[in-house]
Amino acid sequence: MSALLQLTSVSQAYNGKPVVDAMSFNLADGEIACLLGSSGCGKTTVLRCIAGFEPLLGGEIRLNGECIASVGLSKPAHLREVGMVFQDYALFPHLDVAANVGFGLRALSDGERRARVGQMLEVVGLATLAAAYPHELSGGQQQRVALARALAPRPRLLLLDEPFSNLDVDLRQRLSHEVRAILKEQGMTAIMVTHDQQEAFAMADKVGVMHQGRLQQWAAPYELYHQPASRYVADFIGQGAFVPAVISGAQCVTLEVGEYCSLQPLPYPPGEQVDVLLRPDDVVHDDLSPLTALVKSKIFMGSEFMYTLQLASGQQVLAQVPSHHNHAIGEPIGIRLELDHLIAFRRG
């Protein structure tokens, strides 16, 4: 797939303080991406630069091959063919749903506008609410109206700024799946900003992890989880514990619980001290295993427990265990490691 959006060394600063630092990535036509990071990492600023709301301090942005922003150049926001869904939806309270969706279609004839509005309300499942006003809608319905309004002018690129943050957890999860399906059905290229990992994984083909204005890794969710490019990404994505180990061969490490080998060579010489990341799904409960660990705490999560386990050295790890294995705190249980993806970093 060809790149629809290209950011090359994009930088921005507020009051002399860098907010986005030399950020580069490509987004293919039809892909959905998420910029993921904690508050203040610069992710919303990137979105605003792409939309045309912020000038660039450095670098350039290209959309469909055209330079839309660089130092001293900024194509007006309304000419960029970029749609945006805001965090607070920004619906017009005095307009009904149909008028909100059709707001950006004033260049069309009345008949064309009505047809496009009707089509978009069908797409988002709100055809029966065309005459309703925003205050009469639920949060999820308002979010759908905002999405329909952004899609109606047929933008080349859609930007979503934490669109689910005002919704409860269950609705967020459901809508993230539904919005992804709508965007894919429409063939839309999109970038969403979020601080919620599960939301990013549910929505995105590519996820960019940001920290202090820098892009730490740009990859598919599976790769981020199993092949993190840095210790920061490994620590930020998912859950887990770093345990000390020593490189014992080109593809092997020795932990206190034994030697484990990777399918890929490790970038450290034998004898190097490293920390190995153990995810909760790497630690498997096995009553027949001679290796045991003490249950230090547990969290009931419905279909499973999240156990905190203590090894003989005192090192603690997490284990994700089906909930019919209900063990008492202080009880030793058998475990084994399944390290299909061996993630190791030099001990700092």
Results as ranks from 00 to 15, higher is better:
T8D: 13
V10F: 03
Y14H: 11
N15A: 15
K17V: 15
V19W: 00
V20T: 05
A22V: 08
M23K: 02
F25Y: 07
S39D: 06
S39H: 02
G42E: 00
K43T: 01
T44F: 00
R48L: 05
L57A: 13
L57R: 09
G59K: 03
E60N: 11
R62A: 13
L63I: 10
N64I: 05
N64F: 05
E66N: 09
A69R: 01
A69L: 06
S70N: 08
S70Q: 11
L73Q: 08
S74P: 01
H78M: 12
E81Y: 08
G83Y: 01
M84L: 15
H94M: 08
V97N: 00
F103Q: 01
F103Y: 14
R113G: 04
V117P: 00
M120N: 03
M120R: 01
L121I: 04
E122N: 11
V123G: 02
G125H: 09
G125M: 07
A127Y: 06
L129F: 15
A131N: 12
A132K: 09
S138H: 09
Q142L: 06
Q143M: 06
Q143E: 04
V145L: 07
A148G: 04
P153T: 09
P153I: 06
R154T: 09
R156I: 09
L157E: 00
L159E: 02
P163R: 02
S165D: 04
N166E: 01
D168V: 14
R174C: 09
E185Q: 13
Q186C: 14
G187L: 10
V193S: 00
V193D: 02
Q197F: 15
E199N: 04
A204S: 13
D205S: 08
K206H: 13
V207P: 00
V209D: 01
M210F: 10
A219E: 14
A229D: 12
Y232P: 01
G238S: 07
F242P: 01
A245W: 00
A245H: 02
I247C: 05
S248N: 08
G249T: 08
A250R: 13
Q251Y: 07
C252P: 03
E256F: 10
V257Q: 03
Y260C: 10
S262L: 06
P265L: 14
P270Y: 10
V276L: 13
L278K: 04
R279P: 02
R279M: 10
R279K: 14
L288K: 12
L288F: 12
V295N: 06
I299S: 13
S303R: 11
S303L: 15
M306L: 15
M306V: 11
T308K: 12
Q310L: 06
L311H: 04
L311W: 05
L311C: 09
Q315E: 14
Q316H: 10
L318I: 08
P332T: 10
I333E: 01
I335P: 00
L337Y: 05
E338M: 14
L342Y: 07
I343L: 05
F345A: 09
R346M: 07
